[in-house]
Structure formats: structure tokens, C-alpha cells
């Protein structure tokens, strides 16, 4: 098997990502301080999702990996949401 090319990520990129992650953390704290009613959970989860995408793409190198891994990460996420959705078909309508 030929050796796959390895991408070396510069340190400063990791640093920028960290700054973005910390900013997003404070933003998610901020948004839950505002009274949005039922939407504040949604707000906080949107920020968490953005953060996790950043971690997955840069820290976990998905950006430089084979597309199959990216596809499977998406698949696992979808699978999880489908399970939650179907379970809520029970609890929401009970």
C-alpha cells in the first residue's frame, strides 16, 4: 500500500480554532442568559454543534482524511437523530 500523504497543520491554525471555540462558549453562555423561552436550549445546542464541527474538522483532522470517514461521521450523527426522533414519536404523542 502506498503511503498516504500526511498534512502537517501549522500551530497557529490550532490556536485560531481554540480562540473560536472559546468565543463560541461565551456566546452560548450569553444566549442562555437572554430569555428566549423554549428556544434557549436550541440556541445553546446550535453553538455546541458549530463547536463540535470545528473540533471534528480541524482537531480531529477530518478535513484532511478520506471522505469515507467524513461520510460515516455524518451517518452516525444522522442515525442518532433518527433514533431520538423515533423515540419522541412515543413520548411526544403519548
Amino acid at each position: 500500500m502506498e503511503k498516504e500523504k500526511h498534512h502537517i497543520v501549522p500551530y497557529k491554525v490550532y490556536f485560531y480554532i481554540l480562540i473560536a471555540l472559546i468565543t463560541l462558549t461565551f456566546m452560548s453562555i450569553g444566549i442562555t442568559k437572554i430569555n428566549l423561552g423554549g428556544y434557549s436550549v436550541l440556541g445553546a445546542l446550535v453553538f455546541s454543534t458549530i463547536k463540535s464541527v470545528l473540533v471534528l474538522t480541524w482537531f480531529m483532522h477530518l478535513k484532511f482524511d478520506q471522505p469515507f470517514l467524513r461520510f460515516m461521521v455524518g451517518f452516525v450523527a444522522l442515525l442518532f437523530f433518527a433514533i431520538i426522533f423515533i423515540t419522541f414519536l412515543d413520548y411526544y404523542y403519548r
Binding site: I86, L89, D90, Y91, Y92, R94
Partner: peptide, 11 residues
């Protein structure tokens, strides 16, 4: 088990 009707049809 007492699941909701919607869940039962879906399953």
C-alpha cells in the same frame, strides 16, 4: 407497553 399510537403505526 403503552406506547403512543403514532409510534405504534410507525414501528
Amino acid at each position: 407497553s403503552g406506547m403512543s399510537g403514532t409510534a405504534q403505526y410507525t414501528f
